[in-house]
């Protein structure tokens, strides 16, 4: 009889190997990004702004963005983002997303109205520095660069140093450095020291992501991050 009880106990342990839940802290600040900034707006000309709202887990969400201006005497602004320069001078325009029960999320840029055509802000590169977010060493400066063919490349400098003892290490671009969910997977990491670069797929915008993320897939843990300026 004792043997039967022991066997039943073993069976109970077998059945207890069920999938549970791991809750991760993945909150990031909500933000609005103005997709097509300009430095100057031509007098009497118009420009249609667009923006993207990223929610509290860094995911792009289709929310209504309300556009406004700090000085309607210089820039007239429709609620949908159509701006018109009506007088020379400088004014701020603001993109706002109103969230129920929360403070509104805003992004502002300063624009000069002057004679001539509107001048878009040309971002050709962004840079940052990797920092470890774990017990695994990870350092290095990097630059995200837009090439003449509009393709992006992510380049790491000579000071790049990563741990080659970790299984399944991958590099991503992401708007949420806490997880690889929703991130753009660039490559499995096979280079652990020195300068090297990756070419990104076509269609990736230089302002589309905020961070470089190093993530170990088998362990399901972030290894390091680098915020892009």
């Amino acid at each position: 009889m004792k043997n039967v009880f022991v066997l039943l106990g073993l069976l109970a342990i077998v059945l207890s190997g069920c999938i549970g839940d791991d809750v991760i802290f993945d909150t990031v600040p909500e933000r609005v990004s103005i997709n097509n900034s300009i430095d100057s707006l031509g007098l009497d000309s118009t420009f249609q702004f667009t923006g993207t709202y990223f929610n509290s887990i860094g995911r792009a969400i289709d929310e209504t963005i309300i556009w406004s201006t700090s000085d309607p005497g210089i820039i007239e602004m429709s609620i949908t983002g159509l701006a018109k320069g009506v007088a020379k001078g400088s004014a701020n325009i603001k993109a706002t997303v109103n969230l129920e029960g929360k403070d509104p999320v805003e992004e502002k840029i300063s624009i000069v109205v002057e004679e001539g055509v509107s001048t878009p802000v040309e971002v050709s590169s962004r840079s940052g520095m990797l920092e470890t977010a774990s017990s695994y060493p990870l350092t290095g400066n990097f630059t995200l660069t837009k090439g003449t063919d509009d393709k992006l490349s992510l380049s790491f400098e000579n000071d790049y140093d990563a741990d080659d003892g970790l299984p399944g290490l991958y590099v991503y671009l992401t708007n949420n450095p806490n997880t690889n969910v929703g991130a753009l997977e660039i490559s499995k990491v096979t280079i652990f020291k020195g300068a090297h670069s990756y070419t990104l797929p076509e269609g990736v915008g230089i302002n589309e992501y905020s961070h470089v993320l190093y993530f170990c897939k088998p362990f399901g843990v972030r290894v390091g991050i680098g915020e892009m300026n």
Binding site: C18, I19, D22, V23, F25, D26
Partner: peptide, 20 residues
């Protein structure tokens, strides 16, 4: 038997990565 857990967002409670 080998398994890994579901990964759940602590922010939105949604299932991010289903366990297997």
């Amino acid at each position: 038997r080998a398994y890994f857990n579901n990964t759940i967002s602590g922010t939105t409670d949604e299932l991010l990565i289903p366990g297997e």
